[in-house]
Design a protein around this nucleic acid. Structure first.
Lengths: 192, 192, 192, 192
DNA sequence: AATGAATGAGGCTTCATTCAT
DNA sequence: GATGAATGAAGCCTCATTCAT
């Protein structure tokens, strides 16, 4: 029974993810979402009181998921550079392997439909990245730039690499771009 | 007479710029735009047959404007690095001085409401940036990375710097961030 | 349950019939129809995706209904003349007893809002009249005129009789006009 | 100058005739009429204070024109039958030679946009037809049917003949249909 | 008389949400 | 919980008409 319930909820979120990404928030009707999810129009509102609740739940889940992926396998790395590189490739690979989620996050990260509450809640997953970079600056591995600047260029840099890989016109090798991108950043950031 | 006409059109585009940026395309009604522009609902449609025509005209104008600004004062610079730095600060300063335009472009550059035609038309302004970077790679000023990657990191990097400057929480010095940002990139890109 | 549904649909079609006939297609707003039918504005579109779909459904139903009525009781008649007379009075009586439908058909039979598809679909009901007249000409009951001409004069003749009967100014006896009208036609058409 | 004025007015009425017939009253915008007439939107309202005024003027002119044509050459005929036949072919030929006017009259003769005033005004042209038929009944040339019935079948009969001739699918000879149609009617109406 | 930009009421249709089954 | 018909506010766009030039 619990399974059954989860099925419908998952189906709704899946359909919403796809449609919101393709057509935007107002461009997608709850009826379309229900239809794509294979449930009745009323059912959606059993799980999400409001269309905005739905997109906020979705954003929370997807961005949280990204936050988790970011840190996977970090303990296996020893040097600061290797750890940072691992985070970098985790970010890029998540985007490449979860294309819809990647586009969704990019599109709605600064959307007015995502409440400040959701945004703040999600940020908690990213504290560790801030701490990690701060640490790097303190220990001198990274040159003395404002931490926000470093994080922003790092995070958006990884997104650009994903875009390049996903861009069907481009025939570049995935792993090479990941490595090249990191090299640019690391040479730019590292001391010496 | 021509002035009068231009007034209304300009007022509509101005209101649309602000509202589209704040609330998205579907989140903004043509009635709101007309009201904010101080014209009747019907007047908007005298100038733009369709809401989509309006946003496309707007995008064309705004992004074209950005394209122009990018190259201003370039002839005063001599070295490749100085030229690139000038482009960088042109980009950042345009964003800081044209906040609404900056956010608008960021939000709608990959929106489905902007037609391929508009996008292609606008791209023409950016050919010179591609050529410039290609040249830099060929002459060895820039290390041998894929040009797309370099351009993407450069362009998006400049956008991140603008975001940081505009971010009211941040109390960082504008010129320092511009310089720091460029330094990170240049060290990452330049040969030796 | 089914009843309830049918109620609303029927109410909408009834209101549409009356209003379209009185004020024309563009002269009638969907809001007026909904209001007259006692349903919400949106409800109309649950049953008819489009205003044009509504008028086409209506035309199909009404003209089909007329087609059916035309042949009622035909088997009770023996001679060709009696059969034709029965069709004649069926046509007239249908018009007199279904005034709104009668006017509706007259007004929209050559309207651009009725699609060719609807028109063709409806025509199927009238094939039998064509065959019947053809037969009459072949057996010599009817003089050798083009069948189209005969049918047109017959069908439109019946319509004129209805108009005369409905015309409130006229104080003529209904059955007499029906008989007179048929007499004129029959004397005009019959051999000898 | 007077010519010039008449030119614009005529152009407007011509465009209106065509468009009203093709797309109906509400289906045609005054802007479309102006455009087709080659004048500015405002100009139309210099001649016709209202869209309804325009269609009423048009109806008055067109139907009056038909009324006139009906009686042309009547004095050349001697017998009642020949005179009636002349009216019949005048009616048919007017319709065939003035297709747009013919359709316009058919479409708007019972339209709510034509005021009772216009309708009555126009009727004056048709008094003579009534008198003519009355006379025929009184002298015994025509059998004793209600005059309204005779006129209705006569007038609508002529319209059906026009429809048949204009119907491109039909390959019937024009003059034969005119003669056949009259024969049907005359045999139906005439004493003996 | 001629023009056409401006107006704003009104038309068709969509859609988030409710609720009786 | 699940369903889907019903609702009516709100959205995009049209259009008859006015009026300053």
């Amino acid at each position: 029974m619990k399974e059954h319930v989860k099925d419908k909820k998952t189906a709704i979120m899946g359909a919403a993810l796809k449609l919101f990404t393709e057509r935007g928030f107002h461009g997608t009707s709850t009826a379309q979402i229900s239809k794509n999810a294979g449930v009745a129009t009323g059912t959606l509102f059993n799980y999400f009181p409001t269309k905005e609740d739905l997109i906020n739940s979705l954003y929370f889940e997807v961005k949280g998921n990204l936050g988790h992926s970011m840190g996977v396998g970090l303990e296996a790395e020893t040097t600061f550079q290797d750890k940072l590189k691992r985070i970098w490739s985790n970010l890029v690979n998540w985007g490449v392997n979860n294309q819809e989620e990647f586009l969704f996050v990019g599109q709605f990260c600064s959307s007015p439909y995502i409440t400040k509450f959701t945004r703040d809640e999600v940020m908690k997953e990213y504290v560790f990245l801030h701490n990690f970079v701060d640490e790097g600056i303190k220990t001198g591995e990274v040159r003395d730039f404002p931490a926000e600047l470093v994080i922003a260029m790092f995070y958006q840099g990884s997104r650009e690499v994903v875009n390049l890989i996903l861009d069907s016109d481009s025939s570049l090798d995935k792993n090479k771009i990941i490595a090249d991108g990191f090299q640019i950043l690391w040479r730019g950031l590292a001391k010496v």
